[in-house]
Design a protein around this nucleic acid. Structure first.
Length: 588
RNA sequence: GCGCCCGUAGCUCAGAAGGAUAGAGCAACGGUUUCCUAAACCGUAGGUCGGAGGUUCGAAUCCUCUCGGGCGUACCA
C-alpha cells in the first residue's frame, strides 16, 4: 500500500476512535492540489464525539503539528504539513519523496508499470466477440470484441492467466435456413457447389466472399414472408445437422471456413486475439450429457412438447433446453459450454462480454447452473453493454442493412492518412501509422464511454480525431517521443526532484501515481472507459504543461528533471494504450 | 401489462461509489505557430443534474413515486 496513506493512518490511529480500516476507507484526494495531497473528512468522528466537524478538524491539526514532532511519533518527513480546512484535515506530502518514488518506480518497471501479481495462479475465462457465422462483421460486432479484448488485457496486466474464447455462433436454426437458401438459390448467387469449393480449397485458393452468404441469409428472410413452409424446411435441416447428416455437415463446414477467413482478417486488423475458437457447434456431442444431468437432478419437465427448466419460482420465463422438434437451443449450449470450461480451465472467474439485450438469458442460465449445484456460478458474470443504434432506425442483418466493420475501419484509416499528408508528409511509414491511428480512433471511441450506454452511431463522431479521442492520446505520445528524441541523451533517474515544482508537474506525477489504481478499478468494474478517461486526463494535463513550460530548457539540471517526467508520462501512456488495444506510434 | 437499463450544457459524455465551488470534448464565437509536432493550447458563452417527494449535517450520487427513451418478456442468438 501507498507509503503516504500508510503514514497518515499511523499518525491518526492513536488520536481518533476509528480502526485502521475505517481510517483508510475515509481518506480521500482533495479536489484541488492547493488543498493538499490527501484529506481526512471529520464528519464521522465528529458524530461519534458529538462535536462540530470543523472543530474536530482544527483540533486534530493542532495536535498533529508541528511536523518536527512527526519523526518522534514514528513517522518521518513524508508528511510535511497538516492543516484544517473546514471539516477536512488536509495532509501535504513531501513533493521530493512523491516525485522520487513515482518516477523511479515507473522507470524501473517500464512496460509492466501499472500491473501487479494480484491474479497470480488464477485463471479468467473471457467470452467475447462471438459473432454468427455466415454474416459479415458489422459495426455492432465491434463492441464485444473491443471491450472483451481490453478486459483480457486488464486482467492479464494484473497477473491473471487469461483464456479468450470466441464462442462462435456456428450452430442453431439459422444454419438450417442457410442450407435451405444455399440449395435453392446458391447457383443464382454464383456460389460454388460444395464439390467445387472443396476442389478450390485443395488447390489453395481462398474461398468466396462472405457477402454471398449474407445475401443468402437476406434472401431467405425475404422469401419466408411469402412462403411459411421454408421455416419448417429450415428446422428440418438443422435437425439433420445436429443428428450428423453428412450433407448438412459439409455445407456447414463450407460456410464456416469462409466466415472464419473473413473474421480473421478483421480481427487481425483490430488487433483482437483469442485463445480458443470453440463455438457453439463444439459442444454438440456433449449436449446430451448436460441435458441428462439436468434431468437427473429433477430440474426439467416437459411443457408444450418442449423440455424446459421451470423458473416460475424465480419470476422468470422457463429456460428451454430442447424444442418440440428435438433441436437444442442456445441456452442448452451455454450451460454445456460453462460446464466444459470449468472442467477444462478450472477458471476462478468467467466473463461474458455480451450485449444487454441478452440479460434475461444470462439470468436464466446462471440460475440453472445454480440449481444444478454449481457454486462456481458465483464466479460467472455477464458484462453487458448497450446497443449501437442508428439515426435511420435499427440496423438488421436480416434485411441486409448494415455498416460493415471493414468499411468503417477502411474509412477511418483513409481519413488518418489524409490528415497525415497535410501535417506530416515526410513521415516514412505513413501507411502503417495511418493504420495505427485510424484503427485507434475506432477502438478508443468504443472504449471511452461507459459500456452500459446505448450509442448512436454517427460517422462524424467516430471519425473525429480532435479532442477526447484515440488520436489525441496517440498524438500526445508522439509529442513526448519527439521531445525525447530532440533531447538525444540517455534518460536518467539521477535528478534533483526539488526542481519539479510547477503545479502541473505535481498534477502529472499524481496521475502517474494513480495509474495502477485505475487499472485495478477498470478491471474490477469490467469498465475499460475508466482507464481511457484517466489517459485523457493525463494527456490534457501534459498538453497544457507542454504549452506553458519549456522542457528542453537551457538549465541542464532542470532539463534532466523534466525529461525524466516526460519519459514517465510516455511510458504510462504507452502502457495504457496497449491495454486498451491501441498502438503507440512514435511519430505521426 | 410486467421486468431490467439509461435520462447531467445545443450534441456526445465524466463525475475516485454520499462530501469541499457540478467538469471535459464536439459544435459556436474570439485569440495563440520567427519557440520542444497547432491531431495542440488559451479565452467567451452555455446547467431548475428529466420531475416530485423522502433519508442525511450534506444528494447528480441512496429510497419511493412519476414522466421520457431503449431493451427484454417459452421453443432466434
Amino acid at each position: 500500500m501507498d507509503i503516504f496513506i500508510n503514514n497518515i493512518i499511523s499518525l491518526l490511529k492513536d488520536k481518533i476512535p476509528l480502526s485502521v480500516e475505517e481510517i483508510e476507507g475515509l481518506i480521500e484526494i482533495p479536489p484541488d492540489i492547493k488543498m493538499g495531497d490527501y484529506a481526512f473528512p471529520c464528519f464521522a468522528i465528529a458524530k461519534q464525539l458529538r462535536k462540530d466537524p470543523k472543530k474536530v478538524a482544527s483540533e486534530l491539526s493542532q495536535e498533529l503539528v508541528p511536523p518536527a514532532q512527526l519523526s518522534s511519533l514514528g513517522g518521518s518527513d513524508i508528511i510535511i504539513r497538516i492543516s484544517a480546512h473546514g471539516p477536512y484535515l488536509n495532509f501535504y506530502v513531501s513533493k521530493n519523496m512523491l516525485f522520487k518514488t513515482v518516477l523511479k518506480g515507473i522507470f524501473s518497471e517500464g512496460d509492466s508499470y501499472g500491473g501487479s501479481d494480484l491474479g497470480k495462479g488464477k485463471t479468467v475465462v473471457i467470452d467475447y466477440s462471438s459473432p454468427n457465422i455466415a454474416k459479415h462483421l458489422a459495426v455492432h460486432h465491434l463492441r464485444s470484441a473491443v471491450i472483451g479484448n481490453a478486459i483480457y488485457n486488464l486482467y492479464k496486466t494484473l497477473g491473471y492467466k487469461c483464456v479468450g474464447i470466441n464462442h462462435l455462433g456456428d450452430w442453431g436454426t439459422q444454419f438450417g435456413q442457410l442450407i435451405v437458401a444455399f440449395k435453392r438459390w446458391g447457383s443464382e448467387f454464383e456460389i460454388p457447389s460444395v464439390e467445387d469449393y472443396k476442389k478450390q480449397r485443395t488447390a489453395g485458393e481462398t474461398g468466396l466472399d462472405i457477402n454471398k452468404l449474407n445475401e443468402l441469409y437476406v434472401r431467405f428472410h425475404k422469401e419466408v414472408k411469402s412462403d411459411n413452409s421454408l421455416e419448417d424446411e429450415a428446422r428440418d435441416w438443422f435437425r439433420k445437422l445436429e443428428k450428423g447428416s453428412e450433407e448438412a455437415r459439409e455445407i456447414w463446414q463450407y460456410f464456416k471456413d469462409i466466415s472464419l477467413e473473413e473474421f480473421d482478417r478483421v480481427y487481425k486488423r483490430l488487433g483482437v486475439k483469442f485463445d480458443s475458437y470453440a463455438g457453439e457447434s463444439f459442444y454438440n456431442d456433449m449436449l446430451g450429457d448436460t441435458v441428462n444431468r439436468i434431468k437427473d437432478a429433477g430440474l426439467s419437465e416437459i411443457s408444450e412438447d418442449a423440455l424446459i427448466v421451470n423458473l416460475d419460482k424465480y419470476d422468470m420465463p422457463p429456460c428451454i433446453l430442447r424444442k418440440k422438434d428435438e433441436a437444442s437451443l442456445y441456452a442448452t449450449r451455454d450451460i454445456c459450454a460453462a460446464e466444459y470450461r470449468k472442467r477444462e480451465y478450472g477458471f476462478d472467474k468467467m466473463i461474458y462480454v455480451v450485449g444487454s439485450e441478452q440479460r434475461l438469458h444470462f439470468k436464466q442460465f446462471f440460475k440453472v447452473l445454480e440449481l444444478m449445484g454449481y457454486k462456481w456460478v458465483d464466479d460467472c458474470v455477464h458484462v453487458d453493454f448497450g446497443l449501437i443504434k442508428f439515426k435511420h432506425g435499427k440496423m438488421s442483418t436480416r434485411e441486409g442493412k448494415v455498416i460493415l466493420l471493414e468499411d468503417l475501419l477502411e474509412e477511418s484509416c483513409k481519413i488518418a492518412k489524409e490528415i497525415m499528408e497535410g501535417k506530416n508528409p515526410d513521415l516514412e511509414n505513413k501507411a502503417e501509422v495511418a493504420n495505427d491511428v485510424g484503427i485507434g480512433a475506432i477502438i478508443f471511441s468504443e472504449l471511452s464511454t461507459k459500456r452500459v450506454k446505448d450509442v448512436l452511431f454517427d460517422w462524424d463522431e467516430v471519425l473525429n480525431f480532435d479532442g477526447e479521442t484515440g488520436p489525441y492520446v496517440q498524438y500526445t505520445h508522439a509529442r513526448l517521443c519527439s521531445v525525447l528524441r530532440k533531447y538525444g541523451e540517455k534518460v536518467t533517474t539521477d535528478i534533483d526532484h526539488d526542481l519539479l515544482r510547477e503545479d502541473d508537474e505535481l498534477i502529472l506525477v499524481k496521475r502517474l501515481e494513480a495509474f495502477p489504481l485505475f487499472i485495478l478499478r477498470a478491471a474490477k468494474y469490467y469498465e475499460p472507459s475508466i482507464l481511457s478517461k484517466h489517459l485523457l486526463d493525463l494527456c490534457s494535463t501534459f498538453n497544457r504543461y507542454y504549452q506553458h513550460h519549456r522542457i528542453l530548457t537551457d538549465d541542464a539540471e532542470l532539463r534532466k528533471a523534466r525529461i525524466m517526467l516526460v519519459d514517465s508520462i510516455r511510458q504510462v501512456i504507452k502502457n495504457g494504450l496497449s491495454i486498451l488495444g491501441l498502438k503507440s506510434p512514435e511519430r505521426m
